[in-house]
Design a binder for these strands. Sequence first.
DNA 1: AGTATACGTGAGCTATTGCTAACGTGTCAA
DNA 2: TTGACACGTTAGCAATAGCTCACGTATACT
Lengths: 117, 117
Amino acid sequence: MRKTTGQVDTDIFAAIAHPVRRQILDTLLQGDMTVTALSAPFDVSRSAISQHLGILMDSGLVSMEKRGREHYYQLRPDNLNEIARWIGQYEHFWQQKLDALGDYLDEMAAQDEQEKS
Amino acid sequence: MRKTTGQVDTDIFAAIAHPVRRQILDTLLQGDMTVTALSAPFDVSRSAISQHLGILMDSGLVSMEKRGREHYYQLRPDNLNEIARWIGQYEHFWQQKLDALGDYLDEMAAQDEQEKS
DNA sequence: AGTATACGTGAGCTATTGCTAACGTGTCAA
DNA sequence: TTGACACGTTAGCAATAGCTCACGTATACT
């Protein structure tokens, strides 16, 4: 069942796990696009792309707007913040490691200095 | 087959797609840990955790060091930069949207000002 | 009206994923 | 040495993912 509320009901990490879905998102960076236009670069059927778009809709990463008989898909990247925040933890961790390395190197330099005297 | 070189041979996006694997990484933020210690909070078998750790190894997100009969797994988060860079595109896109909105609002304000005179 | 286009959806199939259970190997302890 | 422990690996199974094909529906064109 597809969502009727504004709520996201599929895991956003799983949504970006598939390379085709990531490439769809990358393409949408250039602007809104229809399904057939999006399907063109891929060697899978338009139906498959449509299903991928359904998953991206469920995860809230894209939205759709009907314009005549064409469905224009639009990037809605604010939900990627969840991933950015998750990764942020690790950048913090990485920074701590660098700081520790820096302290270590400083300490070694201080020891070298002391040995010289 | 598992890697023998330092090369990453599995998709890092797929590696972090599974909630259990993300929780393993989150746990490793607190420091190196053995397999049984990592398995404790989960309701799946130690074997399953071991297989998840294998995938995380393949993606280069963790490394392992044998200490006696215990295998200590260690966080190796530098590969997450690939994802951070990918997301960075969208933050840029989002910023552009905000700038455009700002310009639009400025324009509307200018029109208001003109109408008053 | 009839036809073509743009699209979603469902059935059905295959490949992959995630898991448990059972085993084998190396390490510590008595 | 014998047993317990920590772990990896494999087979085998169920569940899911991803795909194509066929269909139905809504819009546009003539």
